[in-house]
Design a binder for these strands. Sequence first.
DNA 1: GGTTGACCTAGAGCCGACTCAAGCTCCTAG
DNA 2: CTAGGAGCTTGAGTCGGCTCTAGGTCAACC
Lengths: 153, 153
Amino acid sequence: MAEVTASLSIGQIAERTGLSVHTLRFYEQEGLFVSPVRRGPGGRRSYTEDDVDWLTVCIILRASGMPLPALRRYTDLVREGAGNEEERLALLREHHGRVTSQIDRLTQSLDLITFKVGVYEDLLEQDGRAAGPGRRRPSGGGDVPASRPGTSA
Amino acid sequence: MAEVTASLSIGQIAERTGLSVHTLRFYEQEGLFVSPVRRGPGGRRSYTEDDVDWLTVCIILRASGMPLPALRRYTDLVREGAGNEEERLALLREHHGRVTSQIDRLTQSLDLITFKVGVYEDLLEQDGRAAGPGRRRPSGGGDVPASRPGTSA
DNA sequence: GGTTGACCTAGAGCCGACTCAAGCTCCTAG
DNA sequence: CTAGGAGCTTGAGTCGGCTCTAGGTCAACC
């Protein structure tokens, strides 16, 4: 129950988070740390487990496409402490919306891709065996040699 | 049934696809057109409906994160015509995989975001009414004023 | 005949998010 | 004592994907 918050070097943080030391310094400079990064002997950065936790959140937000300025804003709000929860919520909600619509867009795109994959699979399969009209797809995904152009989307 | 493939100007294409004229010229330069863009009087680009169809595919592939070089490669394969379907399929499959894993990542991220939104909603709601312990979440998403640090991820 | 407006080219510029380079300070091990 | 390795700072470079500028052509309209 003691564990007086062991301090971690930038290298250790890099290893734990998967971010590069470059990126860690860059993030610091961009104001993405809630509490200022302490310095140990020789001016070396010294981090805590809390920093790792926070970075984990940052990484997830970044992975979901939150731009650095937004992440920075969020960090600022958290640093300011209690009293701005509405704004934090608003920010998170907005991001939530963007992520869901991004997932939607991707899912839609995936439909086309899946379709095209299927078209080529059929094409190659029936190319392999002699002939014989097996299950075919509605056609229209062959991209170019469609003889009558206009259906190649 | 006639419709001798009316030719469209770059401006019309821009309007139809939502790409800017800049981007259309840029894409052409990047080799993202299957057939070379024809030129009308005065050297003006003249497109067909087929180009629109192809661009639509390109837009979807781009929207799902396919990098320009990959898109270019795919375009090259299509331009070359029949005989390279395996490679097209491989390319599409690879992209398919990347898109699905991207969707997975986003969905995971969304979980955290949703959770945090919930935390702040609860917090603000119970802040609004006097007190009374309504349904609460397991806590741990409050970011910073957690008194005992180390649980703020 | 002057002024739009859409188009052309070549090439520069921009933005986001890193990523690296140069030159320095420490500390530790051999 | 020196070589290596981790860290430091400032500032520049990179990459992907556009986006814009400058300077010009051409056709149409008033």
